[in-house]
Design a protein around this nucleic acid. Structure first.
Lengths: 320, 320
DNA sequence: CTGAAAGCGCTAACAC
DNA sequence: GTGTTAGCGCTTTCAG
């Protein structure tokens, strides 16, 4: 591979001049700069990232660490982040699982956005001693750590309260993974709203945020006697499964039973019938905002307002 | 940040011994190794990736470069790749757009899987001079370049032929982006099957692989007089949109019109009604196979059979 | 079994 | 405007 030495030699200058020229440092003679750049292009020179990063102690990479690559929520957040990082000249580096921790520990990224509640908090705290971290959907307190969490509790509470006002009285909950922060908070909001109205949660169905798990729960619900009149699902994907199971059991939505979810990822999809009442989160924007904030933090231009939480909006549709 | 020097000093050994101990080089005294490792843990030492990579000329990172982060196809392939890389001790580094090219050019990855037909072929060729590349869904010939492309043409041809045998006679095509390799190949297979049977393609609707674009096409199709009796969609997401538009126009599937797609990503989802005839690709496995092959290539253990193409299977369901 | 030292490719003082 | 050179943190040869 061509190194800066090769460029320097071929252009008849010293390595430092070559470096200055290539990095657009002002005090180089225009002719020299042109020649160096031409030579570099000719021999297909590209700086070796390891060497540059070792010297400058920066990588220009922003790490985005996710729990998994699946699902509309991750996709949208990632697209939002990608857009902002691209516009600001940073590289996006997405990873997952053990690779994520390694990349943090070994400083392969200048800053990080972590969207993975299973990420080891100690590793985060250690990393944050020197670099800023935005935490999506988990809460850790610490210097250089900026959490941005959805107002799960409050939003669900408001939705359920509204449903109670509409006349629904017997509720069941279809849950995501027990240890998922999101799931816990949503259940809290749900419970609070029911308590306020002196209603009980008739059943807690354990799901895992996937459509098939919602479908299983729906099968159970269809057999309940008496039938509850409302099913709240901790996310939309499970709600789709629930709706299908109810349809197969000929239980009309919303005539016999109301269904609602969380996320709003299927609002644009006309093939979901009936359309699903949910809490819409603008995930793309969430990604953009987080990335923008992180860049500011990295450049010590911290906006005094801090990092905002994602906006959620209750969307009443045909399913309730 | 703690460096290996700090570890060496605190453990009372030289940096070389510290390095040997930490990297499990055999000839170090067990006691020394233990002491060094303990100290390293105490002061929270982690090797600096840039320094290590610069010296060893390896990064232990495998790059996966995608066109975008959305959609079930990407997700599944990524999960498959992730699984294999994790098991073999490599880090997964996913990126997109300009970041991808930069990371390739600057050698931030030891090998790459490229799933992005918009990727600059020159950059790939240049990179492949020194490192192996697996190309998903595009075809470039060259040393160290291993393409793995779906048999789009043949599979679609077989499906359409089967549909013709079932009695369908008037066909329309709902296309993905014009410049998408997948789309072109699928259209070829479709056309060949029709030609064989002396049938014509009644219309080519331009879509973009998204459900809304399929929905638009479906609206147009519903207005056609006479109605075609079969709609072939270049992927499943568009097929969902088409089906919804037809449902809204009260055109029964498959009674009045047959619909089929490509990918098989919704086969598990019970809420798609009627279930969609399609060509199922095992994307997860595709990711696994590709990653496995790439690792072998990297370690010069090239299997003589070369990289296999993903298996596709025609799935006849209720929509035809 | 351990240590001294070279050098990976690059940037950035500093000297001219 | 350009060149010389130290040194980033690490691995690895070579000597002992």
């Amino acid at each position: 591979m061509a190194t800066i030495k090769d460029v320097a030699k071929k252009a008849g200058v010293s390595v430092s001049t070559a470096s200055y020229a290539l990095n657009d440092i002002p005090h180089v003679h225009p002719e020299t700069r042109k020649r160096v750049k031409r030579v570099a292009a000719e021999i297909n020179y590209h700086p070796n990232a390891s060497a540059r990063n070792l010297k400058t102690k920066r990588t220009n990479n922003i790490g985005v660490f996710v729990y998994g690559f699946g699902g509309p929520v991750f996709s949208e957040v990632l697209e939002g982040i990608n857009h902002v990082l691209h516009r600001h000249g940073f590289n996006i580096l997405v990873s997952s699982g053990r690779s994520s921790s390694i990349m943090l520990k070994e400083k392969q990224v200048d800053a990080a956005i972590i969207f993975d509640s299973s990420f080891d908090p100690d590793v985060i705290l250690q990393y944050a001693k020197t670099s800023p971290v935005v935490l999506l959907d988990t809460y850790i307190k610490g210097k250089n750590i900026y959490p941005s969490v959805i107002d799960n509790d409050l939003l669900v509470q408001q939705l359920i309260r509204q449903m109670i006002n509409q006349g629904y009285q017997s509720f069941v909950f279809v849950a995501g993974p027990k240890d998922a922060f999101n799931n816990q908070e949503r259940f809290k909001g749900y419970s609070k709203a029911l308590q306020e109205a002196n209603l009980n949660n008739l059943h807690y169905f354990q799901g895992d945020f996937t459509t098939p798990s919602g479908y299983q729960a729906g099968k159970q619900i269809a057999k309940m006697k008496p039938l509850p009149d409302f099913v709240y699902c901790a996310n939309d994907e499970m709600a789709l499964g629930v709706m299908e199971a109810l349809r197969e059991a000929n239980i009309a939505i919303p005539a016999k039973i109301g269904v609602a979810g969380f996320d709003g990822t299927y609002l644009q999809n006309p093939y979901i019938q009936p359309s699903l009442t949910t809490i819409r989160i603008n995930h793309y924007q969430w990604g953009e905002t987080s990335a923008l904030f992180l860049i500011d933090a990295l450049q010590k231009k911290l906006s005094p307002k801090g990092l905002s939480k994602p906006v959620g909006e209750i969307m009443i549709k045909e399913s309730t």
